[in-house]
Design a protein around this nucleic acid. Structure first.
Lengths: 192, 192, 192, 192
DNA sequence: TATGAATGAGTATTCATTCAT
DNA sequence: GATGAATGAATACTCATTCAT
């Protein structure tokens, strides 16, 4: 048996783990918790199903972890956006684009499944409760107010405007196969 | 020989069946095929689980039937719409409203689950294949062309415009709890 | 509602009951206890499945009753045979014929299923224990001894001879569809 | 990577599978398809019920497979017999013996249940249709013709003679517990 | 009586999880 | 670590039996 040094082993460990995580995101996003079998994940990752349990304690634990990551990442992304240069419209366009490209979808689909699933772990439920639309509305409020002042965005109830736009964005992201993601300029018409 | 008339029996039969169908739509819409247990449906309908199998052969059969109904109903609804009086914009507003109210959501969610489920019966898969966005785009094409001519709708690639609007509508419908359905006038901005 | 007199009603009752019994014999004979559903019996008798329970307490009770009848009838038949006129060979030919014709088969198949079934009621098990091959061997012993003396039958261990012949007869009766019942003269060669 | 070699694993797999197959033959032979529960098979094989489904897709699939094997094996056995040395009578005695010993019974009982079962899979039904008595009659025809010429067997319609003997043999095999298998010389009297 | 809707115990099957190798 | 055999809790489905009409 060849001997690897510690570092190499750890790297291998992480690679395997990421392999499984990526597979899990993909499958969970499409099929939800109940709809995905461990074997679907391990087949996607091209490992044996037994190996799953070397890296994660259970299906639920992994699901919860992914939800947690998704929540954290998304809030961070919005916060970053606010620091960026540009007009409010440009920033929202930036945000929309970062969501609409391929990588954004699994995040929304994961949350979507979490929200509509009977069986998600309590911990995940709590995460979702703390992660309602309101959080984003609050974060984006200053930006939208500024946009309404500059005339970038249409007038009207600001919170409602934000919430509407995010809902449209979320909906489009959640649809999955069989639908073409709309061009961003169409979507921006909702608010500008 | 029975003491009550056949009609009564048949009516009873239909009532029960509808009770179960409504329960099933509600549960399937929320949890998908894998996520719904027969017991969830029968509890919702307040009958024993055994009774389910007096009315349907299996969970899959019922699911397929519901998909079939949904597809048929929706096409019929759009066709009806085209006959209605009013400007193109008014008609689309009518259509949107009939979708956005409570009753429309389960239909979209059902189709959504069907599209993303691994386990749906072959028959249902075929139904979905024949029921792509294209069908609706084709149906609505004359209406949108007219709308573009009258200035009701924005200019540009008509098919893309229809497809975009339907995608936005579908997305919003699919989200389920935790999101507020946007006001229709916001959505109409996408095309008008 | 037309009123029937008592007698008529009773006659109707008996007719129905016999209808069900005949259906049950036919179905039990072919499919055994576990393999026959109440609905198979009631369909054969062309009544609703609910009616079954107006006449019999349970599937098991009916099965046990049929076994009991079968046992009693068969012993009686053999006893009658012994009183008949004719040589031993003629008598055995008579017996064989009465078994090999259509009506005999269900009896053997019923007993066959009872013997090989895990789930038969305790009462039926007891009946079978008391109704082993030995009973018939004992009944037929004098006849066969006489037959061996007259040269009708071959020499050898008499009980074994009887038991062998009855086994062959039973086996042939039990086969059911897909087999042609052999001509009796072939079977009689076993003992004569 | 596994520490033991593939061969070992495969051998283990086969051993388990055979364990289950033998248990299944025994139980199916006695109780038929409907009468055997998976738990009866797995208890006989001393494994958990879940393991059954690692090796077979369903109860029906296993049953069909066993029927198929039985059919194939039996035809092969008869064909081998024809190549053996000896007089026709000796060959038939050989065949009868190989059937009458313990191992032959389950085969006949399996086919018997398959023929009389309502619920056997279509595939199994087809197998049985192709595997009627006629197949064997045709195979054995030359042997019996030779036997009739040499005087080993009695004169008369050859096909009928074969079919009768096979029926007697089958019947005896199908009876199961409660009957003693007759001595072969008695059975051979039917044809010699 | 006669019917078929309704119930629930019993069985088949699936699949997350454990564990020997 | 890696594999896949093994287990058993959870769930789908069947069918004998009851009961309102």
């Amino acid at each position: 048996m060849p001997r690897y040094n510690e570092e190499h082993l750890e790297e291998l460990h992480d690679r395997r783990k990421n392999q499984l995580i990526h597979a899990a995101i993909k499958i969970f996003a499409r099929h939800g918790i109940k709809g995905t079998k461990i074997s679907m994940i391990t087949e996607e990752a091209e490992v044996s199903h037994g190996l799953f349990y070397h890296y994660f304690k259970s299906k639920e634990e992994l699901f919860t972890m992914l939800i947690q990551q998704a929540v954290q990442t998304s809030v961070a992304e919005v916060e970053n956006l606010l620091q960026a240069y540009g007009t409010p419209l440009e920033k929202i366009k930036l945000l929309s684009n970062s969501i609409l490209d391929e990588s954004g979808a699994p995040f929304f689909m994961l949350l979507h499944h979490a929200r509509n699933s009977e069986v998600i772990p309590d911990e995940a439920k709590q995460l979702l409760k703390d992660h309602s639309m309101e959080v984003y509305v609050k974060l984006l409020l200053p930006l939208f107010q500024e946009g309404q002042e500059t005339g970038d965005f249409i007038q009207g109830h600001t919170e409602e405007l934000i919430s509407t736009y995010l809902t449209v964005l979320s909906g489009v992201m959640v649809l999955g196969e069989g639908y073409t993601i709309p061009k961003i300029d169409y979507l921006l018409r909702v608010i500008s």
